[in-house]
Each structure stands twice: as C-alpha cells, then as structure tokens.
C-alpha cells in the first residue's frame, strides 16, 4: 500500500523543524552543520502555516489526479511507481513556467531561489527505512508516514472536526 505523509493537526506546535529538515535533506551536504558551513541555501518543500490558533504543516498530497502533471508544459512533472509526483528524475526537465504553481490547490509548489525551476516534495529525502525527513524531524508526531488505511480513518475525522471548530471560531 502506498504511504503518504499524513498530518495530525492537533499535534503541530509550529516549530518548523520539518521545514528545516526538508531543506537540509535537499542540501548537498545532507546535514545541518555541513550545509551551514558550505554556505548552502537549500529550500524547504513543506510549509508550516497558522490559521487562527491552529498551526499545521502542509506539503504535497501527491494527488491521484494531480493537476500539476496536467499543467506541466514541459512534461517534467510525472508520477513515479510508488505514487510520488515529482518534476525531477523524469524524462524531461522543468522549465520554470509555473503552470504547476498556478494549479496546485495546496500552494506547495514554489520556485527555487534562482527562479529556474519549480520545487516540490519529491520524497528524495527518505532514509533507509523509507521515512521522509519531515516526518523524522517532527518531535510531536504531527507528521506521520503511513498508508491511509493504516491511519485510523476515524481518528482523522475527529482531529479534523476539532481543527475545523477552532478554525471557524477564528474567522
């Protein structure tokens, strides 16, 4: 069963450790101190936002009918066998046309620092056990890497309902 990065909304403290870990995992050095000492500027592909009192990370959902794949004029955005949607490692190169940025409903595709290609969660950060860097970095278990079925559907609904209450209370 394909695994996804699932979000346990009531656990996020907004520490941004996932963002840092994501950036580090996409650095050449591959570790925090090394990347800093090299002067690298890797960018994160997961984003912690706040809505009212609710903080939560948001990253690519690797949509089943991914609009970014349809939108890509270069043919770079594609789906890998494990379900990962990515614009790297495929047959074609990203050309930074931002069509994917325009259609991603989660706003989790962005440009690189130089504006030369689109960056998104590519799951190129997984360790030997296959767990993504953001999940490993999360100190509270707000991020979980699991098959959707493994992750109790009921729990998700509960969590979301609570989150929703908070959100609606704040607008």
């Amino acid at each position: 069963m394909q695994k996804e990065v699932l979000i346990n909304f009531d656990r996020c403290l907004g520490c941004r450790s996932c963002q840092l870990a994501c950036a580090v995992a996409h650095s050449t050095a591959g570790n925090l101190f090394g990347a800093i000492l090299n002067g690298e500027k890797p960018r994160t592909r997961i984003f912690v936002h706040q809505v009212g009192g609710q903080k939560a990370p948001l990253n690519c959902r690797h949509c089943e009918d991914a609009p970014c794949i349809d939108a890509c004029i270069a043919g770079a955005m594609h789906r890998q066998e494990d379900g990962t949607v990515t614009n790297v490692g495929g047959e074609q190169q990203c050309t930074a046309c931002w069509m994917c940025v325009m259609v991603c409903p989660y706003g989790v595709i962005r440009s690189d620092a130089a504006g030369t290609m689109a960056l998104k969660c590519d799951r190129e950060c997984r360790d030997e056990a296959g767990v993504p860097a953001c999940v490993r970095a999360c100190p509270t278990g707000a991020l979980v890497y699991a098959g959707v079925d493994e992750y109790s559907g009921r729990r998700r609904v509960d969590v979301l309902a609570r989150a929703l209450q908070q959100v609606s209370g704040n607008f």
Binding site: F47, H49, A56, L58, Y106, G107, V108, L160, V167
Partner: peptide, 15 residues
C-alpha cells in the same frame, strides 16, 4: 499573499 494559511483552511475544511 498569505496563500498558505488559506490553503490550510481549505484543507481543514474540505478534507
């Protein structure tokens, strides 16, 4: 330009 928080709201609301 705080699209992220809107995305999160949407995500919380519609998923």
């Amino acid at each position: 330009g705080r699209a992220g928080s809107v995305a999160l709201s949407n995500f919380l609301t519609f998923h």
